[in-house]
C-alpha cells in the first residue's frame, strides 16, 4: 500500500530521547486527528519500543535507534523501531508478559505486552548480535465515522 506520508528519525540511545521520540511520532500522526486514547496508545507503544533499545539492545553503551513512521490510506499507521544492538535470543520468550532480563532496574517486563495490546499488530524480528526490528500497526479511526 502506498504511503501518504512518511518520516525517519535517528537518535542515539540516550534515555532523554524516549520523550522526544514519542512526541515526534505523535506530532507526525496529528493530521489524522486521533482521539486522546489513540494518541496515548501510540505514544506508549513507541516509548516501550525505544526504551527496549536503550535498556536491552544497547545495554553496554550508546547505539543508534532508527525510527520510521508511515501513514497509509484509511488512517493506517505503521511504525518501525530498529536497533543494531545485541539482539534477542528467544523472541517468543521475550514477548511473554513479565519476562525480563533486567534484574536491578525495576522493569516490569511488560514492554512487548503493552505494544501488543495497544497496537493492532506487532511483529518482532531479531538476530542475536545483529539487532532487533519492531514493526507496529494501528488504524486511526476517523472521529467523524
Amino acid at each position: 500500500m502506498k504511503a501518504i506520508n512518511e518520516m525517519k528519525l535517528t537518535v542515539p540511545s540516550r534515555s532523554a530521547n524516549e520523550g522526544f521520540a514519542r512526541a515526534a511520532v505523535a506530532a507526525f500522526i496529528a493530521p489524522l486527528d486521533p482521539t486522546i486514547g489513540e494518541l496515548a496508545d501510540i505514544k506508549t507503544a513507541v516509548s516501550e519500543a525505544v526504551t527496549n533499545c536503550i535498556v536491552h539492545a544497547y545495554r553496554d553503551g550508546i547505539g543508534v535507534i532508527y525510527i520510521q513512521a508511515k501513514i497509509l490510506e484509511q488512517g493506517r499507521v505503521v511504525i518501525r523501531v530498529r536497533d543494531t544492538g545485541c539482539g534477542i535470543e528467544d523472541v517468543k520468550k521475550a514477548m511473554e508478559p513479565l519476562f525480563t532480563t533486567c534484574e536491578n532496574g525495576e522493569r516490569a517486563g511488560l514492554g512487548f505486552a503493552v505494544m501488543e495490546s495497544f497496537m493492532d499488530k506487532l511483529r518482532v524480528s531479531s538476530r542475536p548480535g545483529r539487532g532487533t526490528t519492531v514493526t507496529m500497526e494501528k488504524t486511526i479511526l476517523s472521529k467523524g465515522a
Binding site: T44, E106, R107, L110, A113, V114
Partner: peptide, 13 residues
C-alpha cells in the same frame, strides 16, 4: 500527562 510501563515498575516497587 503520560505513563508507560516504567510507571508499572514504579508502582510495583
Amino acid at each position: 500527562t503520560f505513563m508507560d510501563s516504567s510507571g508499572i515498575g514504579l508502582v510495583m516497587g
